[in-house]
Design a protein around this nucleic acid. Structure first.
Lengths: 122, 122
DNA sequence: CTTGAGCCTGTACTGGCTACAGACCTTAGG
DNA sequence: CCTAAGGTCTGTAGCCAGTACAGGCTCAAG
């Protein structure tokens, strides 16, 4: 249906981002279209890297029905900033790592620029 | 000394990447230069995004004293690949998110391109 | 001599799930 | 109709890389 693991949905239910669905006579969860829609919302937001806490905030706005584009934009921009910060961080790592590895001879010798970089005294 | 939280060092000791140091008569940990060096190694590797599992592997090579540049290079390249994969992932997110937010009016209206993107049926 | 700071051990918590155990239910085949 | 294999149910424990206590001991300054 959504490709989402059932246990993940149960987890979302437990932490309160998914509502508890009605049950069948045998106590099975009976989801309807609204649940599927909400789950998709959560899954898409997760794909965009929003934390469940941020998603809770987004949902609170939408659930109120009175969300404004301005409010949503603030949340999205905050998240965008953190995504950009992570990219910058990883790029720094990528740069250091790739330029160090590039100096490796790759042979059977014990001397290694990577180890040197991790061991250096300075 | 190293700027590392004491409780983090204890954690490293517990999971076996730091050796248990000798104790003073009052049971206080007595670190020497070798411990400091090893901790710095771990901290630098963490800064480069290596997991403690990967660091364990690196240390196993170094501890044997018979590490070769080739072996280290393999570990470093594997990690580099995962860093690059994360960057690619975050860039995709950054692209989608920034182009969606760019369409926001930011006003008091309920219509919002970000919400639309999360809610769309397709 | 007291007071505040350090260290000691052990346990519980974080996020975002995943992986069971043990019980119940459903469905297909014989 | 019966059985076996698969689903679902609840609850708990685990992953990573630490952080945050509680409750006790020790140490240095005033």
């Amino acid at each position: 249906m959504t490709g989402c693991n059932l246990e993940t949905i149960r987890y979302y239910e437990k932490i309160g981002v998914m509502p508890e669905p009605p049950r069948t006579s045998k106590n099975y969860r009976a989801y309807d279209e609204s649940h599927v829609g909400r789950l998709r919302f959560i899954m898409r937001a997760r794909e965009l890297g929003f934390t469940l806490e941020e998603i809770r905030d987004l949902l609170a706005l939408v659930d109120g029905g009175a969300q404004t584009c301005g409010e949503v934009q603030v949340l999205a921009n905050t998240h965008l900033d953190s995504v950009r910060a992570k990219i910058a961080d990883l790029k720094r790592i990528e740069h250091v790592l790739s330029s160090t590895v590039a100096q490796c001879t790759g042979g059977d010798v014990p001397e290694c620029p990577v180890i040197d970089a991790l061991t250096e005294v300075t």
